[in-house]
Amino acid sequence: HFYIQSTLYLRPQSPNLGSAFIQRAILIFYPSNQEKHYLPEIRWLYRSWIEMMKDESKNWRTDLIIYTGNYSPSIQQLGCVLNEIRSNSTEQPQCRVFLYLRLSAREIDARTEKQRLFTNADCKDLFNINVQRSILLYKNVKKYDYIDSVNIIAESYPTFKYYNFILKTDIDVFITKRFAKFIPVTNAALLVGLGGYSTSFNTRRLGRIARDINWQHANMTNIGST
């Protein structure tokens, strides 16, 4: 569950907002080498995106952008286009796939000390990669499974710079119908979710159970990678 930390940017929108031309993008990282696990999740996310757009203004465009290492048949079946950046506001909403080489696969050649940065040469113009930063991440955090979910924001700006607003999210979520009419009230806003992994009732109860069985209680709550 996710909770918005502040209601400052969630005030009612102008009734004329639906007539404005607005481009939004939903960004996710999809581990193509773990498709057996993540394919059901991305299908449900895709379906919720389709359902959400039924309530969206005819002048709005919300693309689903997937960064992944392989343009697999399963992704192709969703009708996603490959390595195509949105260039105008009239094109219909589209699922877009961009081939992204995850950090753990960016091996460094021992002889030349050069790092592989792209799945193929055609992807060079789609990303803005700082080589020294990439090498540093590879050496220090490549084993962290979720680093690519964050790193796509840093390196993929050319693919989403056209949009007015972006939503970076995980795969195991649903896009609700309320999102069909939502944008922040200011362009200068970064909204984040507060992961809700428990409740105050459960926290107190776990503390009591720990005392009953003579276990040490650290009293640390809501710990998670997000």
Score class of each variant (00 low, 15 high):
Tyr138Val: 04
Phe118Asp: 10
Tyr9Ile: 08
Arg43Ala: 08
Asn70Arg: 09
Ile152Asn: 01
Lys181Pro: 00
Val173Asn: 12
Lys139Ala: 12
Tyr67Glu: 04
Ile26Phe: 01
Pro93Asn: 08
Leu17Thr: 14
Asn130Cys: 13
Cys123Asp: 10
Asp122Pro: 00
Ala189Met: 07
Gln5Ile: 12
Trp49Gly: 00
Trp60Gly: 02
Arg204Ala: 12
Ile223Cys: 09
Tyr67Leu: 08
Asp109Tyr: 05
Glu56Phe: 01
Leu101Pro: 00
Ser48Cys: 07
Ser104Cys: 08
Val173Leu: 05
Arg204Cys: 13
His37Thr: 15
Arg208Asn: 09
Thr159Gly: 02
Ile166Val: 09
Arg102Ile: 12
Gln76Phe: 00
Phe160Val: 12
Phe127Trp: 01
Lys161Arg: 07
Tyr3Trp: 06
Gln77Ala: 15
Gln216Gly: 05
Ala218Gln: 13
Phe127Tyr: 14
Ser87Met: 08
Asp148Arg: 03
Asn151Ser: 05
His217Ser: 14
Cys123Leu: 04
Tyr163Gly: 04
Phe174Leu: 15
Ile209Thr: 06
Ile223Asn: 09
Ala180Glu: 07
Val150Ser: 07
Gly193Asp: 04
Ile65Cys: 06
Arg24Glu: 04
Glu113Thr: 13
Val150Trp: 01
Asp55His: 06
Val81Glu: 11
Leu39His: 14
Arg102Pro: 04
Asn219Lys: 14
Ile66Gln: 00
Trp49Val: 02
Ile26Val: 15
Asp109Val: 12
Ala25Trp: 06
Lys177Ala: 08
Glu84Gly: 01
Leu126Pro: 02
Ser74Trp: 14
Tyr162Met: 12
Phe174Met: 12
Asn164Ile: 03
Phe118Ser: 07
Glu56Asn: 04
Phe160Leu: 08
Pro73Leu: 02
Leu167Gln: 06
Glu51Tyr: 02
Gln23Tyr: 01
Ser198Arg: 03
Asn83Gly: 01
